[in-house]
Design a protein around this nucleic acid. Structure first.
Lengths: 334, 334
DNA sequence: CTGTTAGCGCGTTCAA
DNA sequence: TTGAACGCGCTAACAG
């Protein structure tokens, strides 16, 4: 029934011009309420839906935004998408998803493919593999773009991030107050501001409490999860830390499994603290303390900013920083 | 640089007609290799990308598919999307995401909004809130549509599902062999074939082992997680089961928390077994046995089927059933 | 308030 | 082998 119903057809049936129908459907002030009503009722009757391609071609508006992220199968990003989608619906927008898998080439390829007018704007959380701000420097001039969570420091752009430094500092202090002296750091997102801020906060907190830094206590994320497992195991055996501060949730599983294999009780022998948006972290109580980023809110804020830009509204801030939450666990409580 | 580059521009620069450029770009047999090469090189030079709206308007092909699911912030669905995206990329397709939040009205609204030619095809996992096969009965005739995981039984359509009955039977038997006699069932997806199959398998397995069914051992999923927590707690207190078979992963957290609150050791006092795609389930070893659905593969298969349909290729099967895996845990091993 | 006209960028006749 | 012309469905100027 909806097949082949276009404004031309509506115009014919109502004996008015195509332009009038178009204006009526867009609720233009030029059209009388009476005519509008006639058009609207017939449109509903015939189940008319505008052809998006035609309207886009003419108006240069796609009613579509793109989300370019490393991966959807990740608690943080899937929650962000949920937030983005919610806002997009409010504005009647559609949401395209692109996963880069931390591959900078795909990131560029996808983003370029969006430049031909497929979307009105883009939300991006950059890949951690390489630094690529030159590319984005020219890109932000071509298309409305909002960065969220994973951003580049040296880039003039609209950014939604979290208080990585502050919360990591607080978390480190928490471990110290729990009596930990040899806190290992599982370093992720090295190439990004978020990763660096977390690591700096860890170091600064140790210094502030007169605890010597020790390079041996730091291990770096590897994309092969077996390697991470081995690294953590090696660390636990060789350096004997009393806590593991995991800066990304990908380190949680190898941490637990390594402790288990070495018969190290969590949290009495080794405490584990991690950035994480896993719901299941609740079950790991009392052994896991988590830093939870407001992923859903980040998605919402990022989308809101983008729509402000699209609607040419003034942004109060070009950079918004949301607060994370440190969820302490029973036995690690002070 | 890519701004305003269209076939008209290419035609002008090369002193040939627009039509020739169009044909050359589409590698038409009518055009000489020499001309094609001239066009292709210039196109690359000027960074030409075709306008998707225009080409869609003309050709009725959008190079876009939609995924309509209850929620992305869910281990199963986010993995499915990952699989879908991977296949879509291979075909040069774009992926739109719509979350219904188990709301049948949104499901219909979204799906209808896609009928005006915004996408070439749809992948759907239906909402569990209500039965709605009448709607889909007419829909499948209008647009290429593949159902995955959550489907309607009484619907002639292409479906990708998993072996819910078999695996739930195997899981129940596993619990029985571990010595459990009073296995509680946490019932989710009641309105869907998957949910019913799991429950039937549970009952049939008990019968096969001459264990009496007991309605008191069954509780049903409620969307308010506090209610679920209370239900499980109540169940544990009043009926004293020796195992909880959770048919959806949403029951895992309330199950653990309830056991904890009642000081019931898992798995020695109560065993927990659940459908789940959580990576972190690994940590819960030895207390949790999981049934893991091949979410990623389901996404891939569903997408593959859809593209076969779009390319008018013959489908070998209109219904594909993939195998789930029962991951047994140490202490519950036989 | 309503209608006429002219494209948006592309693909597909059909004629040369 | 190429090109001129038309139209997909809609919106935006401009007339009336």
């Amino acid at each position: 029934m909806a097949e082949g119903v276009n404004i031309k057809r509506l115009a014919q049936e109502l004996n008015i011009s195509i332009a009038t129908v178009s204006k009526a459907l867009n609720d233009s002030y030029e059209i009388s309420l009476k005519t509008k009503n006639r058009v609207w009722t017939l449109a509903k009757e015939l189940n008319y839906t505008p052809n998006p391609a035609a309207s886009n071609l003419r108006s240069h508006k796609t009613k579509t935004i793109a989300v370019v992220i490393p991966c959807v199968a990740n608690n943080f990003f899937s929650l962000s998408i949920k937030g983005i989608e919610e806002i997009a619906r409010q504005y009647g927008y559609h949401v395209l998803i692109y996963q880069t898998h931390e591959n900078i080439k795909m990131e560029i390829e996808f983003t370029n493919s969006l430049l031909s007018g497929r979307v009105d704007g883009i939300l991006t959380s950059v890949s951690s593999s390489e630094h690529n701000s030159e590319y984005y420097k020219t890109l932000v001039k071509k298309v409305p773009l909002v960065f969220f969570d994973r951003v580049y420091e040296d880039l003039e752009a609209v950014k939604i991030t979290t208080d990585d430094y502050d919360i990591a500092f607080e978390a480190t202090e928490h471990l110290i107050k729990c009596g930990c002296k040899r806190i290992a750091y599982l370093y992720g997102l090295e190439n990004l501001p978020a990763g660096k801020a977390r690591f700096n906060a860890y170091q600064d907190a140790l210094k502030a409490h007169n605890i010597a830094l020790d390079d041996e206590l730091v291990i770096r994320y590897h994309e092969d999860e077996d390697v991470n497992f081995e690294s953590v195991k090696q660390l636990l055996k060789a350096v004997k830390p009393d806590a593991l501060f995991s800066s990304i949730e990908e380190f949680i599983i190898p941490s637990y499994l390594a402790c288990k294999e070495l018969n190290l009780n969590v949290p009495s022998a080794v405490k584990i603290l991690s950035f994480s948006n896993m719901d299941t972290a609740k079950i790991l109580n009392p052994s896991l303390t988590t830093i939870t980023q407001p992923a859903f809110e980040i998605g919402r804020e990022a989308a809101k900013c983008l729509f402000k830009i699209l609607n040419k509204k003034e942004l109060e801030e070009r950079s918004i920083v949301l607060k994370s939450i440190l969820i302490k666990r029973e036995s690690t409580n002070i």
